[in-house]
Structure formats: structure tokens, C-alpha cells
Amino acid sequence: MSTVRVVRQRPETAAWSDGDPYTDALRTGRGPLFLRRADGWLLPLDVERWCAAADAVDLEVLRRCEGAVLDVGCGPGRLVAALGAQGRPALGIDVSEAAVARTVRLGGQALRRSVFDPLPAEGRWGTALLIDGNVGIGGDPAALLDRIAQLLCEGGLLIVETVPGLDLDERVLVRVTDARGATGSPFPWARIGTPALLRLAQRAGWRAEGQWTVGGRSFAALRNRSTNSSAEPPNSTAVISSHRARKPSGDSAVTER
């Protein structure tokens, strides 16, 4: 396994402080909400879908998951909650307190943590999810793929939602903004299509497991580096028990004040 790139600062954290447009949207469950580039270009964020129950496209993603699932950038928690309702072990992580609080209210397990922070059960997760554009976290997909490789077990599965229909690899500085013009702090973000993701992943030692497009959304599945292509998935109960035991009091799942 290659050495992970050390990310000493986590600028994504600054974007999700209390009272910013993203936090307000999660508390109401409604948009409109956008990512705004410096040139004024806007990317709509699908807040209503994120705050709804998992839909048929989401459930197809979850059907493909193996072992214990780590949802990176879990947002308001629909995927973690759906996995829990199926009796499957899952943990969401997000830097937004409002997102973690909403996930917990839905009955999911979640921690307020960056993916680049120390995390429970590192190296033992069966599946990691980067859904709803979360491959953009930190503005450096290569560094993020390296970090996810550390978190997964050998032969573990990563499912990534990509930009549909485009061979795109874009690194930008953005702010979250709403229809009234309120904005959060700037942070680096990335957008990547499936072809660019697969090229990047291949160079990093991942193996392409599949790709599909459904409901206007595109996904790719990657298999983690492994010395054994038939590596067994981790013991799900052990992984979830581990994150419960190791969770320090300062990082407990939060509830909104």
C-alpha cells in the first residue's frame, strides 16, 4: 500500500460551521442551495433528496455493499439510516454537526469527523461510500483515494458517485450559497467523471469493479489493493463493536442544541 498523503489542514471543515447556508438547509430539509465558484458558476445541491428517505437508486448502491459500511460525508444520513433499517452495520462521518445530528435522529450511527482524522476500525471496513459528489472532499481525489485505501480492509469495496456523462476532472475553490445570497467560507472541491476517476484509481493501484448509470446518476465501484483477490469481508460485528469501544467522549455522536 502506498504512503498516504498527509493533509495537515482540513479546509472542508470551515464550510460547515453553525449558521451557514448548508446547516440552515439541513435543519429545514429544503433548498435551494448551491456550490458557487469564484466566476459565479453555480452547482445546484439536491438538499431535498438528501433529506428524504433512500430512493431506488440509493438502494441499488446499498445492495452492492459488503461487510460493515463507512459512509464518508454522510450528510443528513439517509444511507446510514437505510442500512441500519436493513440490520446492516454502518457508520456515517461528516464534519457538519447538523448533518451528524440529523443522522442520529434517523436512528443511524454517526461521528463528527473528517475522513482525514483518525477513525474507528481503520483497515477493517468492508465498504466505503463517496456518494452525492463526496469524491470532491478536500479538492484532491488522489489524496482521498489514498486515505480510503487505508480505511478499507484488503480487497474492500469503494463505491463512488461521479459526474454523469462527462470525462471531467475539475479542481475548484467554492462556497456554499443559498437563494438569498448568504455564503459560507471558501473551501477546495473537486468534480470528476467516471473515465477520469478510473484512470486515477488505476494509477493508485485500485481495481475497477464496475460502473453503472441509473436515474440520471453515475457510479463506479473500485476494489482496494489486496494480496489476495478473494479476500473475505471483515467481521461486521467486530468492526462496529470496535468503533463503539474506541469512540472518545469528545467525539460522541451529537444532538442539535
Score class of each variant (00 low, 15 high):
114 S>V: 05
222 L>W: 05
69 V>I: 10
236 S>F: 00
74 C>T: 11
91 L>P: 12
33 L>H: 01
252 S>R: 13
76 P>S: 14
55 D>M: 08
37 R>K: 12
85 A>S: 15
187 F>H: 07
194 T>E: 14
199 R>W: 02
238 A>Q: 12
250 G>M: 06
136 G>Q: 10
35 L>A: 07
7 V>P: 00
94 D>Q: 11
224 N>M: 03
253 A>M: 12
51 C>F: 08
150 Q>E: 15
185 S>K: 05
89 P>K: 05
202 Q>R: 13
158 L>F: 08
95 V>Y: 05
230 S>A: 12
196 A>K: 08
37 R>L: 12
227 T>W: 14
28 T>F: 00
210 G>S: 02
152 L>A: 10
256 E>G: 14
150 Q>L: 15
238 A>S: 11
83 L>T: 14
239 V>P: 08
254 V>F: 10
209 E>W: 03
2 S>G: 13
188 P>G: 04
182 A>K: 11
25 A>D: 03
35 L>R: 13
1 M>F: 04
169 D>P: 01
61 V>S: 09
136 G>V: 04
106 L>G: 15
50 W>A: 08
108 G>K: 11
144 L>W: 12
2 S>R: 14
34 F>M: 04
102 R>T: 15
249 S>I: 12
218 S>C: 12
216 G>W: 11
82 A>N: 10
72 V>A: 07
55 D>Y: 05
36 R>K: 11
199 R>F: 02
71 D>P: 00
142 A>T: 13
150 Q>Y: 07
205 G>C: 01
70 L>I: 10
76 P>N: 13
92 G>M: 09
4 V>W: 09
148 I>K: 01
195 P>D: 02
129 L>F: 05
141 P>W: 05
41 W>K: 13
28 T>S: 14
244 R>M: 09
96 S>V: 02
51 C>N: 14
240 I>K: 08
19 G>K: 06
181 G>W: 00
33 L>M: 01
212 W>E: 04
89 P>F: 03
164 P>M: 07
169 D>K: 04
177 T>W: 00
24 D>G: 03
